[in-house]
Amino acid sequence: MSLENTKNNTVESLFKQYYNPLYNFVNSKIRNSEDAKEVVQDVFVKLWNAKGKIDLDSPTIKSYLYTMARNTMIDAIRKKRDQSDVDIDNLDAGSIATDDGDALDPYIIRTEIMKSLSILKPKTRQIFKLNKLQGYTYEEIATHMEISVRTVEDNMSRAYGLLRQELKKNEIFS
């Protein structure tokens, strides 16, 4: 993950860059959109209050945000333990044990892909979504859209090519 571009960060620039990855990370664990938003908001409130005390341009800022999100989330779950059906102990032990910011990378890439879908031509985007979001096979898509499997393949590789370009442009890929 490229970090060369993280100079002159502000709370706002970090917010806009990491809000969606953090939100989706938290939401994938607690599966409650409003709570997830609250957790991420709280993370940035803490960052805001620490302004001046920490270096926003630090290469470890991503891990810092991730760790704060993880801790804030665990606090939030503890608080609601009684009403919540999330198994806190399992959460602790398993899926969120990793403590480094790289755990956030998949969410950074996924949210960036979602954002970048808008640059695809409508047909290409549709084929990509049918395959990746709805799980149709190339053959099923071809039949459904009355086009050849070859056309589906062409569109898919075009989608991958353009998405990679976009992710490089936004320095997600080096």
Partner: peptide, 18 residues
Amino acid sequence: DIKSIDEQSNSLQNINLI
């Protein structure tokens, strides 16, 4: 890069953009 896009885009179903 393509591998990573391929893997990650298999988990897009629950990704929301806020």
